[in-house]
Design a protein around this nucleic acid. Structure first.
Lengths: 116, 116
DNA sequence: GTAATATGCACCCCAGAGGTTGCATATGAA
DNA sequence: TTCATATGCAACCTCTGGGGTGCATATTAC
């Protein structure tokens, strides 16, 4: 084991997750993920209906999500179906857990030092 | 139970977590959280040393994190000590878990429908 | 073949984020 | 008191992100 333990013992360093969090840091994009998660694969037109922004804006949001591997679009016929891709989201979840664990560890160490 | 189940059965709707994710969506801010998490409470000057940006920039980043309740600053003497605040981060973690669970549920339902 | 649908592409616009500099203020040290 | 340290505040700059419009292209429907 390395002498000085850092974060993210498994996987990339946590600050590498910043782009993923940034992609999740938009209300509309979270809604898109939610829709794809519940409704299965959907086309851009389907995703646009029910929102108050244009299809182009939705397209850009999907592009941002796809750039981080959070969704994937497959062309079928004249439409492109977008589906949720859970891998990166799990990675982000694990990195949050890594921080929480590190914090708990630091607290425990502090408590030991105080009681010592 | 409501007829149509939505996300975030416990807590706020998931899209309400967007500001928290946005706050986490910056490499420098993730580094700050990591530093506070491992090193305990630190002053701005301490947090600035080792980075290549100015103290003011660090101050703004801490402001963003504090606005989402991810860190908290307490004035002691002539310096202000910043410390990590795990509550909001746990909330974000739970919302990611909520999405993952919803996804698993949707997959299971789909599998059932196929086998039916 | 022609029309309607679904999407892609290229710009344009503007507010806000990230960063800097300069100066003011508060507090510990000598 | 006087100086050095730690931070706060405000103005300014630049660039990107979210959103929009217009037009081109590809497919399906008739």
């Amino acid at each position: 084991m390395s002498p000085r333990r850092r974060f993210a013992l498994h996987g990339k360093p946590l600050h590498a997750c910043a782009p993923t969090f940034a992609a999740l840091g938009d209300e509309m994009r979270l809604r898109l993920i939610a829709a794809l998660c519940m409704g299965g694969a959907m086309s851009i037109t389907q995703l646009t209906s029910g929102t108050d922004i244009t299809r182009q804006a939705i397209t850009k949001h999907l592009g941002v999500l796809a750039a981080q591997g959070l969704v994937r679009g497959v062309k079928v016929g004249r439409e492109r179906l977008w589906e949720f891709e859970p891998a990166q989201l799990d990675e982000a979840r694990r990195s949050l857990e890594s921080i929480a664990q590190q914090w708990d560890h630091a607290l425990a160490k502090l408590k030991l030092a105080v009681e010592d």
